[in-house]
Nucleic acid binder design. Structure first.
Length: 344
DNA sequence: TCTGGGGTCCTATAGCCT
DNA sequence: TCTGAGGCTATAGGACCC
């Protein structure tokens, strides 16, 4: 049986800011967008003090401001969080190379073959991160990724939860289906409509019904995960599948010059990233979100892999022309996919 | 009223080929 | 020659994750 550990940093962005600005400790701190709650943007991370006001990730900054005007709003400083994240990953790597990174502040470790009690490993990790980085984290341990992740979420902040094979059903069946990875607001609503609220409710539904309702792939996934079954391996290395940039205008616009200028700049950014990381791409997709949030994409596939700004910009503008602009535009974006590594 | 940015994966559909 | 059935690829949209 595998032993998987999931580590989740507590209010990571806010905690990093409180560490380098100690006067913010104990105060409601909200990290998001440009750090200006009158501008468009959403909350990336709220400190625990801010969460007491009902503020949470993905909430519009303007709403967060209304809920807690005295909060301290700060811009996202991704470079700094990346630096701290790397220090933490170094500590994790000293325990095992079998690590799957999940974004900047989470990771899975396969600790099956480490000759030490899982609880002891977890406590050592927590101690070292506290001492060497100055931050707290929450850790979950289980027989697979699904259970480890649910476990890490059960006690926060600075928690440690271990779910053994025998305890899986008792531990997860009372929980909302939302706790399952891959079940978001839409699926939760559909399940509610079927009278399914908890993971235990989901586990009573026959496999055939789930496949009929949700398709083969997702139906199977729901069936297995409701029973705590998850054979998925840790992904320790992967190649990017696409590189993209997008931007939301501060005010919706129908000015062609503004839209074109932004698309050109975003394309330049994407191509720069492609060159830095050594990829060429074949498919160029543009994305437009109108003021009513209706979102459309148009794609153009090139004859050859390219990292030429000229070629990719032309493809982007051709796709934009095909889409047409009949309403005010809220967001514009560009993505290059179908990537191939440049050999040297 | 609000609803970011950078990603992944899945599904449906349409066109083309055998 | 006509009519499909499948397979493959490109495209568009959508749900979800951090």
């Amino acid at each position: 049986m595998r032993r998987i550990l999931h580590i989740d940093m507590d209010a990571f962005f806010a905690a990093v800011e409180q560490m380098r600005h100690p006067e913010l400790v104990g105060k409601p701190v909200i990290i998001g967008g440009a750090g200006d709650p009158t501008m468009r943007g959403v909350v990336s991370t709220a400190s625990y003090e801010a969460r007491k006001y009902g503020i949470h990730s993905a909430m519009p900054l303007q709403r967060a401001y209304r809920l807690c005007p005295e909060a301290i709003f700060l811009p996202v400083d991704y470079d700094e969080y990346m630096r701290v994240s790397e220090k933490i990953k170094d500590i994790l790597r000293s325990f095992t190379p079998l690590i799957e990174n999940v974004g900047i502040d989470e990771a899975f470790l396969d600790i099956t073959d480490i000759d030490m009690e899982p609880e002891k490993i977890a406590n050592k990790i927590k101690e070292r991160i506290k001492k060497e980085v100055g931050l707290t984290c929450s850790i979950g341990i289980g027989p697979n990724k699904l259970i480890a992740k649910i476990a890490s979420d059960m006690k926060k902040p600075d928690g440690l939860t271990i779910i053994s094979e025998e305890d899986i059903k008792v531990a997860i069946w009372p929980l909302s289906v939302r706790k399952l990875w891959g079940v978001g607001p839409k699926t939760e609503k559909r399940l509610k409509g079927m009278g399914i609220h908890t993971i235990g409710d989901l586990a009573t539904v026959p496999l055939e019904s789930l496949i009929e309702e949700f398709g083969k792939s997702y139906g199977n996934y729901l069936y297995e995960s409701s029973r705590g079954v998850d054979e998925s391996p840790l992904i320790t290395y992967w190649e990017p599948k696409s590189i993209s940039r997008e931007t939301t205008f501060q005010r919706d616009t129908d000015k062609w010059t503004v839209i074109a200028k932004n698309l050109a700049e975003l394309t330049k950014d994407v191509v720069e990233t492609m060159k830095e990381s050594g990829y060429k791409g074949k498919t160029v997709t543009i994305k437009i979100r109108f003021k009513d949030f209706e979102t459309h994409t148009r794609a153009k596939t090139l004859d050859d892999f390219s990292d030429s700004l000229e070629t990719i910009r032309k493809a982007a503008f051709e796709a934009l022309r095909r889409l047409g602009l009949k309403k005010k535009v809220r967001l514009i974006g560009v993505r290059v996919s179908n990537l191939a590594k440049v050999e040297h």
